[in-house]
């Protein structure tokens, strides 16, 4: 079955017809061409597909596209303004990425964290990011990046 939906995507309204089988991740990647949110486990276990739904981090692979009608969705493509977002810059500078597959999801979860808590400590960062797996870095440099970014924010 097809349903028309419209939602705010990175601040702009988009409208499309989706089937009930499509997830938000499918819609973003296949219908809207935004491949920043990564498809990895596709079962809600790894966090590579994390996007913000009404400002809250969710696994886009576990949200149906029809459900987001009327909502606001933010993806990594919306993070950058004129310049890189402080979190993006810090992730680069602190070497918080290797293969990079987890990076977009981690950036969005971290962005939501900083919106709630502008100066998180290490434990708070670890707990907030517990739903994002990284197989490469060992996490230490990602935590450092979030701390650096929190200090850099105005």
């Amino acid at each position: 079955m097809k349903y028309p939906i419209s939602f705010h995507l990175n601040g702009k309204i988009v409208s499309l017809e989706v089937s009930t089988q499509e997830t938000l991740l499918d819609a973003l990647r296949q219908r809207l061409g935004l491949t920043g949110a990564k498809e990895a486990c596709n079962e809600g276990n790894c966090g590579a597909c994390t996007v913000l739904l009404n400002s809250a981090p969710v696994y886009a692979c576990m949200v149906l596209a029809v459900e987001v009608d009327g909502s606001a969705v933010e993806t990594v493509e919306g993070m950058e303004g004129e310049e890189l977002h402080p979190l993006q810059k810090a992730l680069i500078d602190q070497h918080g990425l290797q293969c990079g597959y987890c990076s977009p999801g981690i950036l969005l979860t971290a962005q939501a964290l900083l919106a709630h808590n502008s100066r998180p400590n290490k434990t708070q960062i670890r707990e907030a990011l517990a739903g994002n797996l990284c197989r490469c870095t060992g996490y230490t440099d990602i935590i450092k990046a979030v701390q650096v970014a929190s200090r850099a924010r105005r």
Partner: peptide, 9 residues
Amino acid sequence: VPAWQVRNR
């Protein structure tokens, strides 16, 4: 419940 993404949904 560990994952924030899960707690949000």
